[in-house]
Simulated assay, not measured.
Amino acid sequence: MFHKLIYLLFKLKLIQPSANSINYWMDCEDTNKLEYALAHGNYKTRKLAAEALEQIAKPCSIPALLKCINDKVQNVSIACLNALERISPNDELIKTVVNKRFKWVNDIREKRAKFEANKDVKHTIYRWRRTSKESFDRVKEQLKKPIR
């Protein structure tokens, strides 16, 4: 009864379900509530719902997981990819989607690590004497002189 009330308040957008509620829905294998939490929850709720759907591993939840692999929060999309990989490991379409997404995630992590490593490095740029600069200064000096 208590978890039904939590789900009702969640649908009315008054509260977010706790980890205990999501674990209860996972134990009851209530995929409809978990899919709703995956679509409409905050980032913590979405991540917990994706992990719960991974534990249940029912193929009926594949469309909801496919919708959430492009989530703004990286941890949610990774959890959805892990769930997809566990639910149908032999499906070629899901294999290609998971591989491309993990490559994208690895690229983002490498860029972030490279940025963090070079954040404190100060670059010193030496200005070498250029002939064009010298000739420009020489012409400027000649123009300052009066014409005869």
Rank of each mutant, 00 (worst) to 15 (best):
K114N: 12
T124S: 12
V105P: 00
E116T: 04
R130F: 09
R127Y: 15
K100R: 05
K119Q: 06
N106F: 07
D120L: 11
R127G: 11
K144R: 06
W104H: 11
H123E: 15
E116F: 05
V105A: 00
R130C: 11
P146D: 08
V121D: 10
K140L: 13
H123P: 10
P146F: 06
F136G: 06
R112F: 02
N106P: 00
T124Y: 14
H123R: 15
S132D: 13
K122W: 09
K140W: 12
Q142N: 11
R109A: 06
N99D: 10
I108G: 00
R127S: 15
F115W: 07
K145R: 10
S132H: 09
E141D: 14
K111I: 04
D107H: 02
V98P: 00
W104Y: 12
R127W: 11
W128A: 15
E134F: 06
N118C: 08
V97E: 03
Y126Q: 09
K122A: 12
K145P: 00
N118G: 09
K122C: 09
V121H: 10
V98S: 03
P146M: 07
E134M: 11
Y126H: 10
S132I: 09
D137V: 09
K103T: 02
R112A: 04
I108P: 00
W104N: 10
R127Q: 15
A113C: 04
R127D: 13
R109Q: 07
K103Q: 05
A113F: 04
L143E: 08
Y126K: 08
K119V: 03
V105K: 00
K114F: 07
F136E: 11
R127F: 14
L143P: 01
E141Y: 08
P146A: 08
T124K: 13
F115Q: 09
N99V: 07
K119H: 05
V139G: 04
K103V: 02
R101N: 01
V98F: 01
F136T: 10
S132N: 10
D120T: 12
V105Y: 00
S132Q: 10
R112T: 02
N118T: 05
D107F: 02
R127A: 13
D137I: 10
T124Q: 13
D107E: 06
R129K: 11
I108T: 03
K111G: 03
E116I: 05
K133N: 14
F115E: 09
A113T: 04
V97M: 04
R129Y: 12
N118M: 08
T96R: 12
R101M: 01
K119M: 06
R101Y: 01
K122G: 06
V98C: 05
K114V: 04
I108Q: 03
W104D: 13
T96H: 13
P146I: 07
K111S: 05
K144V: 03
K100C: 02
R101V: 00
R112W: 01
